[in-house]
Simulated assay, not measured.
Amino acid sequence: MKNFSDLTEKELLALAIALEEEDSRIYDEFAHALSDNYPDTAKLFRAMASEESGHRHRLLELFRARFGDHIPLIRRQDVKGFVERKPVWLIRPLGLDTVRRQAELMEAETKRFYARAAQRSQDAAVRQLLGDLAEEERRHEAKAERLEERYVSAEVREHEHESERRLFLLQVVQPGLAGLMDGSVSTLAPLFAAAFATQDSHETFLVGLAASIGAGISMGFAEALSDNGSLTGRGSPWLRGLVCGAMTTLGGLGHALPYLIPHFWTATAVAMAVVAVELAIIAWIRNRYMDTPLLSAAFQVVVGGLLVFGTGILIGSA
């Protein structure tokens, strides 16, 4: 992957073309999915898709004038800093609230991309076009926000955040949740393998402590190096790495600390209860912040946790 700051003007324009094509097709999918139940909203998304297509043609004309007909293949996944977009447009039936949140997120990110790209450009024509597109994306974001005013009740609106706030929460909560899941699940196997192999609380605690801290360091560096935050506004990558690493360590320590209890079987019973609570909390967080259905989140987390838990017991009892 390439850093946003390392892109040339040719690559910036090629990436902008790819982004506009992707967004236009997504809005077309939104319009198609909503046309039966929300025809007015479908018209709005068709208009937004048409505008994105117009943006693409303007970018193509400028690219050909500056760099010729060959456009490098560079996509959002090739550049650090973009938000990972879940393919919600493939879900049927597609809820209006889901579409609204996704549209706001898309427009906030695209607006930020054009604003940053315009600042970096040294070519006057490129800089002007990118700046104009940033302003037009701001108007798109306002259209997406009007969906909330028209279709979402005041009670629901009071509990939701603005699009930039959603973007911030998504990118702050996500590394913390990833760390908590990794710490709570991945450390189960070494901890309970050591527990059933030694049947000694002190030895088991040392293994759990080492596994938790080691996993925290690993996950912290992985998160810090995954995204420099140049486009998403996620802030310092090292701060995100610290959050992810701390949550990973905390997730592992949750079921390691009971082994400070000298009596082995009492400590094991408490540790198992803590594991159940941890998995329930993770399922709730995924449902609350990551839009995962509660039953699906619980099934995924519990099955994964039980598999790792059983692996540790089997290895430790061998």
Rank of each mutant, 00 (worst) to 15 (best):
P72M: 10
A178Q: 09
K86E: 09
E164F: 14
D28I: 04
R58M: 01
L225G: 05
Y151H: 07
A256F: 04
S236V: 04
A246W: 00
A47D: 14
G81Y: 13
G241K: 00
T98P: 04
V270L: 07
S317N: 15
L250R: 00
A222V: 03
V275N: 05
T249E: 03
L94I: 05
A189H: 03
G81W: 14
G183K: 02
L96T: 12
A298Y: 03
H255L: 03
S317C: 09
P39C: 12
F67T: 15
V88E: 05
V277L: 08
G95H: 04
S35R: 15
G179V: 00
L231T: 15
A210L: 10
R66M: 15
A14E: 12
S186H: 01
Q199T: 07
Q119A: 14
A31G: 13
L44V: 13
A117H: 07
S317F: 15
L169M: 06
A154E: 02
R85L: 12
L225V: 08
R92L: 13
G235I: 06
E104L: 11
Y38G: 08
I281N: 02
R100K: 03
A283Q: 04
L253P: 02
H263A: 06
L314I: 15
S201T: 05
P293M: 06
D132S: 14
A142D: 11
F221V: 03
M219C: 01
G245F: 03
G254T: 07
G251T: 03
M106N: 12
S296L: 07
T311H: 03
L12T: 12
D227H: 10
L62V: 10
M1L: 14
A298V: 01
S212T: 00
L73H: 09
V270D: 07
L260M: 14
V277M: 08
A108S: 15
P190A: 07
M247A: 05
C244N: 07
M290H: 07
L177D: 03
R85A: 13
L62N: 14
V274L: 02
A31W: 08
A271Q: 02
E9R: 09
V126P: 11
H255P: 09
V302W: 09
V88L: 08
L206I: 13
K111T: 13
R85K: 12
R166H: 05
T232F: 07
R120F: 08
A178Y: 09
L44W: 06
S184T: 01
R139P: 02
L206M: 15
D36Q: 15
S226E: 10
R127C: 15
W238L: 14
S230L: 08
L90I: 09
I74T: 12
V277F: 06
Y27W: 09
V172T: 11
G176Q: 02
M219V: 00
I213W: 00
E145M: 10
L7V: 10
E203M: 12
L90F: 11
A18K: 12
